[in-house]
Design a protein around this nucleic acid. Structure first.
Length: 226
DNA sequence: TGCCAGGCCGGGT
DNA sequence: ACCCGGCATGGC
């Protein structure tokens, strides 16, 4: 009885903090309007290219792809993995990432004749599981695609999310991806618009105030929660 | 000039 | 079930 009320209290406390974080971030930064990409396919490619990589470098790679009219499934499926690697060079890890984008394209063309409409036409949990089965697509990349390309309410967890939550004492440093994701999804309405903004705001806060080295906690809109 | 950036995989223990 | 090396460019 006692332990139950303690855990309920703790859950309620975290729920309130997560909602307060969102209010503070939204008030401070305003809407972020993610994903920074024009089409679903651009979101998918960007999600793979940004793995452990600065977004600025991804933008250079995306610009290359656009300049060569390659940023659509059919054209990108046609070229060799070697040629693709050449275009995405600025994104770093270009050989492995070219292979990963190709893995997705092979899946898309093998099973869905290259149609994203067909590929997305399934239950959210099935879609997520299917994405995870593709080599080179892990939890964060899969969830980014499910949320930002398919528009389904799953919460995306990334390095900034972990760091911010850890520094505010909401998770352990070695917390697992699914546990962090559950923290958000058990305490917030399953709303794709909300999850979209929330993750984008966490990344914004991370970039501006929560670097690994020299975090600017004084100026951070979440500073008051420490 | 070294460190960091919106991960993930494969092999080893 | 972990742990770790590898993957690579560009900006500060």
């Amino acid at each position: 009885m006692i332990s139950k009320s303690i855990s309920m209290t703790d859950k309620g406390r975290k729920s309130k903090i997560l909602k307060a974080f969102y209010s503070s971030l939204y008030s401070f930064f305003g809407p972020q309007r993610w994903w920074p990409g024009d089409t679903r396919f651009e979101v998918i490619v960007g999600a793979i290219l940004t793995q452990n990589t600065n977004w600025g470098n991804v933008e250079k790679a995306v610009k290359n792809l656009k300049r060569h009219k390659l940023l659509n499934p059919a054209r990108m499926h046609d070229i060799s993995v070697h040629e693709l690697a050449r275009h995405i060079r600025p994104a770093g890890y270009f050989n492995i990432k070219a292979k990963r984008v190709k893995s997705f394209l092979n899946h898309l063309f093998d099973g869905y004749s290259g149609s994203l409409d067909k590929f997305f036409k399934k239950r959210t949990d099935i879609l997520r599981h299917e994405l995870l089965s593709i080599n080179g697509i892990g939890p964060e990349t899969a969830d980014s695609i499910v949320l930002y390309a398919a528009g389904r309410p799953v919460f995306v967890v990334d390095a900034y999310t972990k760091r911010i939550l850890f520094r505010h004492g909401l998770i352990k440093e070695d917390a697992a991806y699914r546990d962090i994701q559950r923290l958000f999804m058990d305490n917030l309405a399953h709303d794709a618009i909300l999850f979209n903004e929330y993750h984008a705001l966490l990344v914004r806060a991370g970039k501006d105030f929560c670097k690994t080295k020299n975090p600017l906690c004084d100026a951070c809109p979440l500073g008051g929660f420490l």
